[in-house]
C-alpha cells in the first residue's frame, strides 16, 4: 500500500530533519530514490529544481512534489497522486509540529543545559556530512552527461562551478541561479 508507505516514510523524514531544508532534501533523496526506488535520481533532481524555484519552504515543496511523483510513477491516476502529495506534506509536518508544541512548554528549564548543547553541536556536524552525501550521490551521468570531452559534460561542469561560485561566495539567491542556468541550457543545447 503506497499511501501507508508514503505516510510512514515522510513521518520519519520529518522527525529526523535537523538543520533546515537541505538536510530534509538529503533524507527524502535517500528514502525515495535509493531505498524505495519510487523515482530515478534524475527525476528527483528535476523535482529539486522546481521546488527551489517556487515559493515556500524547500522541504515542504520537495515533500509535496515527491509524494505526487511517487504515487503517479507507480501507475496510479493523477488524483491519487494529489492525495499522495497531501499525505507526504502532512506527514512531514506532523511530528516536528508535535515536538515543537511539547518543547515550547518545557523550554525555559533546559535551555542552557550543557548536555543538550553538546548534542546539538555533534548533530550540526553530522548534518553537514548528510547533505554532502546527498550532493555526492546526485553527481550522476544522467545529470552531467557521460564523463569525457563531450559538450554536455563540459557545459555541466562549467555550470556546476559557476553556480557554486555564485551561491557560496556571492550569496546569490537560488532563484536567479536556477533561471540563469535554465536559460544557458536552453541556448547552449540549441546550437
Amino acid at each position: 500500500m503506497i499511501f501507508l508507505e508514503l505516510f510512514w516514510t515522510f513521518l520519519k523524514i520529518g522527525i529526523f530533519t535537523f538543520g533546515g531544508g537541505y538536510s530534509m532534501v538529503a533524507l527524502i533523496q535517500n528514502e525515495v530514490v535509493e531505498k524505495y526506488g519510487w523515482m530515478t535520481a534524475q527525476e528527483y533532481t528535476d523535482i529539486l529544481a522546481i521546488s527551489q524555484m517556487t515559493p515556500g519552504p524547500i522541504g515542504i515543496n520537495t515533500a509535496t512534489y515527491a509524494g505526487y511523483t511517487a504515487v503517479v510513477n507507480s501507475g496510479l491516476p493523477q488524483w491519487e497522486g494529489v492525495i499522495g502529495s497531501l499525505i507526504a506534506s502532512f506527514a512531514v509536518i506532523l511530528l516536528p509540529f508535535v515536538a515543537m508544541l511539547i518543547v515550547c512548554r518545557y523550554l525555559s528549564r533546559h535551555r542552557d543545559n550543557p548536555v543538550v548543547n553538546s548534542m546539538f553541536k555533534v548533530l550540526r556536524l553530522t548534518v553537514v556530512g548528510l547533505i554532502a552525501a546527498a550532493a555526492l550521490s546526485l553527481l550522476t551521468t544522467e545529470s552531467f552527461g557521460t564523463v569525457g570531452l563531450n559538450k554536455q559534460f563540459i557545459v555541466s561542469i562549467l555550470l556546476f562551478a559557476g553556480v557554486f561560485y555564485f551561491s557560496y561566495f556571492r550569496r546569490t539567491s537560488p532563484i536567479y541561479l536556477i533561471v540563469a542556468s535554465g536559460l544557458i541550457g536552453l541556448v547552449v543545447y540549441c546550437v
Binding site: V128, I131, L159, I178, S181, L186
Partner: peptide, 25 residues
C-alpha cells in the same frame, strides 16, 4: 534542454550549503 542546464546547477546549490553549514557548525 532547460533541465539539462538546471541539473548540474541544482547539485551545486546543494553542495554550497555544505560548506556554509560547515562554517556555522
Amino acid at each position: 534542454r532547460i533541465f539539462m542546464g538546471l541539473r548540474p546547477a541544482v547539485v551545486a546549490l546543494i553542495a554550497a550549503p555544505v560548506f556554509r553549514m560547515a562554517k556555522s557548525a
